[in-house]
């Protein structure tokens, strides 16, 4: 189970802020899952400058997701 959080423009694009995805074991699996359900969002999170955080730590590449993992998709940060 993965709890996905969206921020900034990604949240507006998808129309949701938070969603639970069942049956995903790694980040690549989650991305394919999102691509089937939300193709526009999948394209946006593949765009330049989008970073991923797993349990509030930035990650690169594929990582495995354990139960109750929180995944955040972070568009380019704007600063305060």
């Amino acid at each position: 189970m993965a709890r996905v959080l969206l921020f900034g423009a990604l949240r507006d694009l998808a129309g949701w802020r938070e969603q639970i995805f069942e049956g995903v074991s790694d980040l690549d699996g989650l991305r394919s899952h999102i691509a089937r359900l939300y193709p526009d969002l999948a394209e946006a999170i593949s765009g330049p400058g989008v970073q991923f955080a797993v349990d509030k730590a930035l990650v690169r590449g594929n990582v495995s997701l354990s139960a109750q993992t929180e995944i955040a998709f972070l568009p380019p940060m704007s600063g305060g």
Partner: peptide, 11 residues
């Protein structure tokens, strides 16, 4: 650094 890099999203 807060103005350019900090993890905030501004609308």
């Amino acid at each position: 650094h807060l103005k350019s890099r900090a993890p905030f999203w501004k609308k």
